[in-house]
Structure formats: C-alpha cells, structure tokens
C-alpha cells in the first residue's frame, strides 16, 4: 500500500512539474508571438509600438498598386473606406491578391509617416471567401 502511494506521489510530482514547465513555455511563447489585428482607422487612432509586429487588413485601394520596375518590391494602399495606410512589401504576392479585394498584411507600422512594412501578405483563399477580419474592418466594427 505504501508503495502504491509512493508511486502516486512520483507520478503526481512528475505531472505537476512538467505541467509547470509547459505553462512557463506557453507564457513565454505567447508573450512574443501574438499578432494583434488593426484596421487602418484603428491604426491612426491608437498606433502600436513601433517594434511590435501586427496585422492590418482591409481592401487594396483601386489604382494604388504599383511595382518598382522589374523588382520584387511593391507598394499599395490598404483602406477600410475611411482611413488609408501605405504598405511596402518585397516578395511574392498571393495568387488572389488584386486591387479592390480583401487583404491581410503582417508587419511593422511606422506611425510617423503612416506606412507599413509588411513581411507577409495573405489574400482570400478563393473567390467566395473573405477573411473575417477584413469583413469586420470594412463594417467598422
């Protein structure tokens, strides 16, 4: 009987300590790897810290997309139909990225000149689907 209790103690000790380590890991990881979402209006209202990566979303403004000739660099404007943010990106754009369509960009915001340096661009996955955040941003929620 004592043996069984001792086994239980070992088991409980192991589970408690490894759970504690896991919780610690989760807290550290969450602290660094969460990307808050902003619409252009929210960005102007309360811009985030300069060195924290965030996501922004809205529509790619019509006529705003231009490519630095023969390079991977593109500039465009994301709008929620009220406010606008200029976005810079260097890299491959998703297949369904186009003007007047929804987009979500991950990157860093520079409040001083209202510009956004993106390192990841997500567009819709198919013709019928619009990212949830984009829909909310356009509705002004």
């Amino acid at each position: 009987m004592i043996k069984i209790r001792r086994n239980r103690l070992y088991a409980v000790l192991f589970i408690v300590s490894s759970s504690a380590v896991a919780v610690g890991l989760v807290l550290i990881a969450l602290n660094q790897n969460i990307n808050l979402f902003y619409s252009p209006s929210e960005l102007l209202e309360s811009g985030p810290l300069k060195n924290k990566s965030i996501r922004i979303g809205g529509l790619v403004e019509k006529g705003s997309l231009n490519r630095v000739s023969d390079s991977l660099e593109v500039n465009f404007i994301i709008t929620d139909l009220k406010e606008k943010v200029a976005v810079k990106y260097s890299g491959i754009l998703p297949d369904l990225f186009k003007e007047d369509a929804g987009v979500v960009a991950t990157g860093y915001y520079d409040k001083n000149n209202n510009s956004f340096q993106a390192f990841e661009i997500l567009a819709k996955h198919d013709e019928n689907y619009e990212p949830k955040e984009v829909v909310n941003a356009l509705e002004g929620k």
Binding site: A29, N33, L36
Partner: peptide, 19 residues
Amino acid sequence: GGKSITVGAPYFNLTSVPI
C-alpha cells in the same frame, strides 16, 4: 471584447519542440 489576434507559428515551435 472583440479584439482579433493570431497566434504565430513560432508559438507552436517554441512550445512543442521542447516537450
């Protein structure tokens, strides 16, 4: 109250690899 976030891949790598 309706703030939207995503948890990035680094979270999962950082937590699952040690375990």
